[in-house]
């Protein structure tokens, strides 16, 4: 967060960057990394994070351009502004990395995650789970007499909130995809 509580909307290289680069406060940043889709490229990226002691809070990866052999890796990481800048620079020097975007610093971005919840229960708990799922706009994608699987897409916070509500109602398993993100606008 900026020291002046000014909305983030600038890169670290902009003259309008008001982030305090000496800040010791940890920030969460979402990075979009466009890479050559070749064997080992994911290992290069995550090896960089583990080797240099950076955090990975969430990671998704898939090919996004079949003819151009491009994959997009979305990583949610956390660190002080200096560490975030360093992560960006270190990613940028991997030979198979084409572009690195700090979506958190570059402007507003849409973040979405898909999650599946298996909830088992009977009676009132089962009805309550179904009712809450409706409120959260989760879909039922599998059901037995004793269980549901809910599918939900949303921000990580929304998924966390739903998981918290399901826990006392018989939550058995969660599968999450990790965050996919795009910057807003054209």
């Amino acid at each position: 967060m900026s020291a002046l509580n000014i909305k983030k909307g600038s890169t670290s290289h902009s003259a309008y960057d008001l982030r305090d680069s000496h800040s010791q406060v940890e920030e969460s940043h979402t990075l979009a990394i466009i890479v050559e889709n070749e064997p080992g490229v994911l290992a290069r990226v995550i090896g960089l994070f583990s080797g240099r002691g950076y955090n990975i809070d969430s990671l998704t990866v898939a090919e996004v351009d079949h003819t151009g052999h491009r994959s997009r890796i979305t990583i949610v990481t956390s660190g002080t502004p200096a560490v975030i800048d360093q992560i960006e620079a270190q990613l940028g020097r991997i030979v198979s990395v084409y572009e690195v975007h700090d979506l958190t610093a570059e402007g507003p971005a849409v973040q979405r995650e898909l999650a599946l919840f298996k909830v088992a229960g009977k009676g009132d708990a089962r009805i309550e789970a179904l009712r809450l799922a409706e409120i959260f706009r989760a879909n039922v994608v599998d059901s037995t007499l004793e269980s549901f699987i809910f599918e939900m897409t949303g921000t990580p916070e929304k998924i966390d909130a739903f998981a918290d509500l399901m826990r006392p109602l018989g939550l058995r398993e969660i599968a999450r995809t990790g965050v996919a993100a795009l910057s807003r606008g054209a």
Binding site: A82, Q86, A89, Q90, G92, R93
Partner: peptide, 11 residues
């Protein structure tokens, strides 16, 4: 020549 060398240790 390496952007990651800059501000890595000393601002």
């Amino acid at each position: 020549i390496d952007p990651s060398s800059i501000n890595k240790v000393i601002r």
